[in-house]
Design a protein around this nucleic acid. Structure first.
Lengths: 157, 157
DNA sequence: TCGAGTTGGTTGAACGCTCAACAAAATCGG
DNA sequence: CCGATTTTGTTGAGCGTTCAACCAACTCGA
């Protein structure tokens, strides 16, 4: 038997649309700022950040895809671009002959160091500053709940 | 004098990364579901929704761009695609010879009607169901605050 | 009324992402 | 040990978005 759709009520509609508007505007603004000031999209910035935090500034491609939340295909394309820019190089993995290590170059680290202050300032200005400390805390809990739930969906499939 | 960067502290980092992970996963999941089940990306779904709610199911291109939060260029390209699909048609505006009216076709309305239940179910499952009623309320306030703030930034430039 | 500036909309190139297909190496089960 | 399966990573085509450039029509002030 067909299941009746549980439509969104007026409050839920309002929440959903505000959420869409806010997240889209936020990410587009940060992306644009980063592109303008540092010549890289936000996704590439995140790759550089994760590499910069890793031991020896290097990670397996798969692990890097994992932590940046991207597909292997996406990361592969991105790595090719970042390699062209001289910000990253790839090297065969000694312990697994299928593997590739993504390694942040000095130029890549420098590009990240140049981009970071402006980007962090943007995150503050557009996300943290407008919210009260209590709201920041709420946002963290909400985000962690959603992220956990979505991760479960992935592993369950 | 150079201004010192106000870096994110550990809590802020955690919040920011959880937020990134959650919103990215949420939007990608919904986009994928919509693409799989209805053959359209989420952005196009939103265009159809807004048109379906407008008087006579039609809107000026500019107004449609406004409410869907997209650039005029983006909407122009999207409208071309939607027109190919037979879900939308464009017609000259009687009151402004520069203008174009975007009009939802019957086929477009039908496609929307077919896509909506599955999509709403996805929004429920991935967003509303995992959150408590209090959190949904918090998320609404947070989103509205951020959206207002970001809209101010736009108009101020 | 006429010129300058603004608004509405489109276009094409460049770019990033998705998806499916693929190849090579590792792992697992019998 | 060997065949089947899984994991790792890349590739190319197709699509959606951005950005800058552009034209046409509207508006407004002198």
């Amino acid at each position: 038997m067909a299941v009746m759709t549980r439509w969104l009520d007026a409050d839920e509609q309002r929440t959903w649309r505000a959420f869409l508007t806010a997240t889209r505007a936020l990410m587009e603004t940060l992306d644009r700022e980063l592109q303008r000031d540092a010549g890289m999209p936000h996704a590439y910035y995140e790759i550089l950040v994760r590499l910069s935090e890793a031991p020896d500034r290097q990670l397996r491609m798969s692990d890097l895809a994992q932590v940046t939340g991207s597909s292997r295909s996406r990361l592969s394309h991105a790595a090719a671009r970042l390699e062209e820019a001289g910000w990253l190089r790839r090297q065969e993995c000694p312990t697994d002959r299928r593997g590739q290590l993504a390694i942040l170059t000095d130029a890549g680290f420098a590009a990240l160091a140049a981009a970071a202050p402006g980007h962090v300032e943007g995150v503050r200005r557009h996300l943290f500053d407008p919210l009260s400390p209590a709201q920041v805390d709420q946002l963290r809990r909400i985000s962690e709940t959603l992220a956990d739930h979505l991760a479960d969906d992935r592993t369950a499939s």
